[in-house]
Each structure stands twice: as C-alpha cells, then as structure tokens.
C-alpha cells in the first residue's frame, strides 16, 4: 500500500489521478447539465427533478461527499503540481516562444494547455460563488419558501451575476478544451487510430458543456426569467429545501 501511495505521488502518479478525477468531474458536469436543461422545459418539470433529487436522503449525501473529495483531490493535485512545476524552472527565460503554434498544425488546444492552473483557479472561484448561491444560500439569499425554479430565475436575472456565470462557464469550457483530451494522454491512451477521435470528441464536449451552461445566464440576459422571479407557482409549492443541490 505504501508503495502504491509512493507511486501515485510521483509526477506521473499525480497526473494520473488528476486525469481520473478530472474525467469523473466531467461525468458530473454531464449529469448536472442534463438536469439544468429542464429549465427550458418548464418550472414544473425542473422543480419535480429538484424534488426527486433532494428526496434521496442516503444516496445524495454519499454522492455529494464523493464529488467533494474528487474536487478537493483534483484541486490539491493541481496546486501541488503547479508549485513543483514552477520550481522545476528556477530561472525564467528572457524570451519564450511556442514552437507548437509555429511549426505544427496542432495550434488550437495548446493555448488552453498553457493556462490550466489559472483557468482552474477561476473555475474554482466561480464554483464558490455558485455554491454560495445555490447550495449554501449565503450570497443574495432569497425567499426561503421560493421554489427551485423561482430561485434560479431570480439569481440568473441579476445583471452582474449573469456576467459572472457567463464568464465562469466559458472559462470552464476553456479548461476542458485541454483537460478532457489531456486526461486520456495522462492515462496513457494515445493511439493513432483513436487519439484524433478523442481530441475531436474532447473539443465537442468542451464546447457543448460551455455553451450549455452559458445558455442559462444568456437566457437571463434575454429576460427569459423576468416573468418568473417573484412569487412561486402556487400549485407546486413544497417545503422547499434551502437551495438546489449538486452545485449547479
């Protein structure tokens, strides 16, 4: 066991865990986005989904704890590797120029790869804001009796919040642009037959996730929620939990 821990704490081991946790978090993003898309379907369906989710009193805390641990591990590994990587070049170059962009056709994802730590930090800050809104209810708390839909509609109608959510989700997409396909490389999956497919899929995945999530603040900007911010639809009123779950 100690040898396993030792092996996983090597540079490669850490990247391996980064990749695994990153891909798992990607899986969560898919679930989360699917749920959120119910915002389009209607308040009733969305609230029903939220209700169903929150009535899972055993599974939900387990899933949330697991998710939290994945996230902490992903972030901790990111910070540790970033520090080590920073230390590995103790003196910086006077001038540094990418050779990938200039000499190969692989220009696009490379830009994202240079900024993984920074985009990761921005995503983390966005996540904290988001949890503050929806999970903890500490940022701009609303009416505790409001429905989930009403709550989301209220938050997504605030001008500044819309911009924060828009920026946060787009930076997340940028992070995924490199992160998704890079995880496969870290896991040792690079094959002439499949790598191109993984890269294309990774690109589509990142764009879909980013646009999918970004569409909600955009909806807010366009006034989609303006009619729904105030009172909850009376029929579906339940003893609303403080906020929606998984950080969304």
């Amino acid at each position: 066991m100690t040898s396993l821990i030792r092996a996983l704490s090597s540079t490669i081991g850490k990247k391996l865990l980064m990749g695994i946790t990153g891909l798992a978090l990607c899986g969560f993003l898919v679930v989360h986005l699917s749920g959120n898309l119910l915002l389009y379907v209607g308040a009733e369906q969305y609230d029903a989904y939220a209700h169903a989710l929150h009535s899972q009193t055993i599974l939900l805390p387990i899933a949330e704890t697991g998710l939290f641990l994945l996230l902490i591990l992903h972030i901790a590994l990111g910070v540790i590797t970033a520090r080590e990587n920073w230390a590995a070049r103790d003196v910086r170059y006077e001038k540094k120029k990418s050779k990938v962009v200039e000499t190969t056709s692989k220009g696009a994802p490379n830009v994202a790869s240079k900024w993984m730590f920074l985009t990761g930090i921005i995503v983390l800050m966005f996540l904290l804001v988001h949890l503050g809104h929806f999970k903890l209810g500490v940022i701009s708390p609303g009416d505790p009796d409001a429905t989930e839909f009403a709550n989301a509609a209220r938050i997504l109608s605030q001008g500044f919040t819309q911009l924060v959510y828009l920026a946060g989700t787009l930076v997340l997409g940028f992070h995924l642009l490199h992160g998704f396909q890079s995880a496969f490389q870290s896991l040792g999956i690079n094959h002439p037959k499949y790598t191109k497919g993984i890269k294309i899929f990774g690109f589509i995945f990142a764009v879909t996730i980013a646009l999918g999530f970004a569409s909600f603040p955009v909806l807010g900007l366009m006034g989609y929620f303006s009619g729904n911010t105030g009172s909850p639809p009376a029929a579906e009123s339940v003893e609303a939990p403080p906020a929606e779950t998984p950080p969304g």
Binding site: T11, I12, K14, K15, T81, E84, N85, A87, A88, R89, S98, K99, V100, T104, K106, N110, S113, K114, M116, H178, S182, Q185, S186
Partner: peptide, 8 residues
C-alpha cells in the same frame, strides 16, 4: 517538472 501535455 510534471507533464502538462502542452506538446512543446
């Protein structure tokens, strides 16, 4: 340092 798959 560790590999960040930048392909540089």
């Amino acid at each position: 340092g560790a590999c960040t798959n930048t392909a540089e």
